[in-house]
Design a protein around this nucleic acid. Structure first.
Lengths: 136, 136, 136, 136
DNA sequence: GTGGTCTAGACCACG
DNA sequence: GTGGTCTAGACCACC
């Protein structure tokens, strides 16, 4: 479980745990059917309060991502993968919408926003086949 | 002062006020040198407690956006425009970066992300002259 | 009346007027027995609210610095000079005390404070006859 | 936390708290990395409203002196010490400059000012090795 | 337990 | 009239 937690972020820690586990599932790092670390184990590993981990796991159960195996622990549900992918996609879309909305009511021109977007895309993605820059 | 406040948002009300005023200055709706509505006035208009407005104004002062004219009210500082534009630009860039970073570590392909971006751009911006869609 | 007023200072404007008039008297620029500008006149000259000037003059009367000459205006009292000098001296001493007290409870060593003092003294005073620096 | 608050001072209470905490950090009484008293605790100790303390702490956060550890409390930032020392030094220098400037435009001679300074230095500092008085 | 936000209302200084 | 400070008390999220 390689989770990178930033305790100084505004985002609640339990929420960071939730999201990163969902991401790990969406990207295939965590396979449906596999067990996840116990509350105490993960808490010790991340140097966090066990309550924080417990809350994260509780949310993941409520979201239908994890399921309890009595006497054993928590397991990634079989349908978790698709749910995580969808949720992640929606999350990204929502972020995008908010960002673009603010940009559109700002003093920035569409071209400027597009330039910023392309710059960030190139930073994080390997260039796509034929279109790392737009044709104008 | 047309501020749209959402009291149910996660974002604190005072912060919504701060940001919207900065946006209004960045976009030129609020001119440097002009006075802004009094604490009591804006509080009444938005149906908020004057202290909430006062806190927003205090932050704007600390940020060098507003300045007090004692016994008179608060005025938009002369250098506020550039500061607001810069800050807004940086805010948008940071949002963008976070979004793209998450997208890149997700299961989404670059092409999918680009498609989402173009869809949102077209929703909020009037289409740019020649490039409302990317050439592939 | 050459008063330099800084409307952005924390110090109230009326107080700046009071103090600067006292300084002018202490330094001999304003002579006991001479008339001072009318409220309206000075307000216009300094681009201030007449109430502000009126309040300053009121305080100066209460302090025994100015006196009314009925039907004519306000005049610098005969004993004003000595009072202003004393008051100014006390003001400076109080400032000094506060400053030194803070410095003493800080992490600064006496030698550092002395060095700062000498630097400022040299900036504002022409060097004294034989002792612009300390002998060690 | 031995803070001496003077509710009758012109200086706002929250500001006295801010400054005294900065001083405590600058002088090493409060160590970077250590927790500070909770809002409620300090409020009770100083017989003040918790909001007043909260405001002071908020300013210290904005100044990069404190940081929140969510659900736990507030901690002195690692770089706080240097910041506080610098700020304090600058504060003292500014006070000094204002004081000397006023003294220089007054009727006081440099020698008189120097005598006042030495008197105050000796009141608050233990005499320095060889130079408790100036040589003339 | 912790800090953070918001409301409500009082009082003050300034112009 | 204006902003600024302070008190009081409620509610919330987080750990």
């Amino acid at each position: 479980m390689l989770l990178s937690i930033d305790p100084r972020s505004q985002q609640p820690i339990y929420d960071q745990v939730v999201r990163q586990i969902k991401f790990a599932i969406a990207s295939g790092v965590l396979q449906p059917g596999s067990m996840i670390p116990s509350v105490r184990e993960l808490a010790k590993e991340l140097v966090l309060n066990p309550n924080t981990i417990a809350r994260a796991y509780r949310e993941l159960q409520a979201d239908g991502i994890l399921e309890t195996v009595r006497g054993v622990g928590l397991r990634v549900q079989s349908k978790a993968r698709r749910r995580c992918v969808n949720e992640q996609r929606e999350l990204i879309r929502a972020r995008l919408e908010q960002m673009i909305r603010e940009a559109s009511t700002s003093s920035l021109a569409r071209e400027e926003v597009e330039a910023m977007i392309d710059r960030e895309l190139d930073r994080f993605f390997s260039p796509s086949s034929s279109d790392s820059t737009r044709t104008k």
